[in-house]
Amino acid sequence: MSILVLAEHDNQQLKPVTLNVLAAAQQLGGDITLLVAGHQCASVVEQAAKISGVKQVLVADAPTYAHHLAENVSDLLVDLAEPFTHILAASTTTGKNILPRAAALLGVNPLTDVSGVESSHRFKRAIYAGNAIATVEIDEPKVVMTVRGTAFDPVAAEGGSAEITSVSAVFENADIRFSHEALAESDRPELTAASIVVSGGRGLGNGENFELLYQVADKLGAAVGASRAAVDAGYVPNDMQVGQTGKMVAPELYIAVGISGAIQHLAGMKDSKVIVAINKDEEAPIFQVADYGLVADLFEAVPELQNSL
């Protein structure tokens, strides 16, 4: 077996989720090649080459790859695909944008958000908002799949010394252009990689009240997430949404504040190790998955929590 993994990065830093995807690749077995497609991404290449278990790092460094547009990166993947039996990427908005396109170009079915490797062609993945776990067998000459990071423990970021090879092929689709982006800036840990997540829902009432959660989060070194209702109401930006159609998180500790616990929200956080729920409604479904439930008004409980940390 021979595996190609698409590295996730922002041209400066390798995203930690890449290490989780590499763990899935290691479970498959075989040689692992990591592809860094980006622009002026030398520091990412340096980090990539040090990762334990990576045999080769392929580098495609060109302006057309700067924003990881699916059109250009999938053409690149197709160009490189020949020697590989498996092509993997993280199940992030980047990976999910690119890999199915590459799969269709290769004439194969992709698999999305794989959370378990049973064999080279047999995998587990969650369906129906995580209410069922399917085991599927894929009969394709190449397996193209995205991987749920939280389902695999990361490989070591250091200890390897991969060979670095540059790729000269440059693909540029004339029908699409990056215009601009508004990326959230935060000093807090990234939501999907944080070991503690504090999330707020509609119960917070408005965006200013999220300040209460930020204060708790900063004492705990935690990331802050939200329910869809809180995002839709404009309390916080979309990149904070946890759930079936937002981000999947599985921290050591998840604190849900003023969140009712709809199945779509639970789908994104119920693999957390310890779950705390603070809600004034003792019937809220979130309590059915909480290890520790506190029935209380959040406007009293959260400041008290912050003071006792």
Partner: peptide, 26 residues
């Protein structure tokens, strides 16, 4: 090309407890 082999319910979370106060929670 994708055969469904089996479907299982997700791992159940064991029932938790209700705490009476923030102090107890911490």
């Amino acid at each position: 090309k994708i055969k469904l082999i089996s479907v299982a319910p997700p791992a159940e979370r064991s029932a938790g407890i209700k705490v009476g106060s923030v102090a107890e929670l911490v």
